[in-house]
Simulated scan of single mutants.
Amino acid sequence: MKTTLFLKYATLGSMLLIVSACQQVQAVAEPAVLTESSPEVKLELQQQIQKAVGGPLVKLADNVYLFESQIWVESAVLRDDKGRPLDGRHMDLANLFILQIEQGQCQLKHNKSGQLFVLTKAKCMAEKQRFPEK
Rank of each mutant, 00 (worst) to 15 (best):
Q105P: 03
V33L: 01
F117Y: 14
L43W: 03
I49P: 07
Q100P: 01
R79N: 09
D62M: 07
S69T: 08
Q100F: 03
L96I: 08
C106S: 15
Q107F: 04
H110V: 05
R84I: 07
K109W: 00
G104D: 11
A27D: 10
A61Y: 11
A76N: 12
D92Q: 15
N95Q: 15
P39I: 04
L116Q: 05
E68V: 04
N111Q: 14
S37L: 01
A126S: 13
L93G: 04
T120K: 14
L116T: 07
N111V: 12
I98P: 00
G83I: 10
A29K: 00
L86I: 15
K82T: 06
K59W: 13
Q105V: 13
G54N: 08
T11C: 09
A76W: 05
V41R: 02
V19I: 15
L12Q: 07
F67S: 10
Q105F: 05
L34K: 08
V58K: 05
L60S: 09
M125T: 14
E44D: 10
C22Y: 08
K51A: 11
G88I: 03
E68G: 07
F131N: 04
K128D: 04
P132G: 07
E40C: 06
C124S: 11
M91T: 12
Q129L: 12
D87E: 10
K51L: 09
Q26C: 07
Q70D: 10
G114E: 00
S75N: 10
Q105K: 12
I101H: 04
G55M: 09
A27V: 14
S20N: 06
R84W: 03
E127N: 15
D62R: 04
L16K: 02
S38A: 05
L34Q: 05
F131C: 04
Y65W: 15
Q23L: 12
K123C: 06
Y65D: 06
C124W: 01
Q107G: 00
V33H: 04
Q103K: 13
L119Y: 03
E68D: 14
L60A: 12
L96S: 07
I49K: 09
M91A: 02
Q107V: 03
V19R: 01
R89H: 06
Q105L: 10
A61P: 02
R84N: 13
E74A: 13
V64Y: 02
V118H: 08
F117L: 00
Q129A: 14
A126P: 07
G114T: 01
M15A: 14
H90I: 06
L108R: 00
E44N: 09
R84A: 09
V73W: 09
D80L: 06
V77I: 15
V118R: 06
Q103W: 08
F117S: 05
V53S: 12
K109E: 01
Q47E: 15
I98C: 04
V64C: 02
Q70W: 00
V25K: 06
Y65M: 12
C22H: 08
L57F: 13
L12T: 10
D87F: 08
L119R: 01
A94T: 05
E74I: 09
E30P: 01
I71K: 04
A27Q: 13
L17G: 13
D80V: 02
L119T: 02
A21V: 04
D87W: 02
G55H: 09
G55Y: 13
S20H: 07
T11H: 11
L60I: 10
E30D: 11
V53K: 15
Q107S: 08
G13K: 02
Q24S: 12
M125D: 13
L66I: 09
E127D: 15
V25W: 03
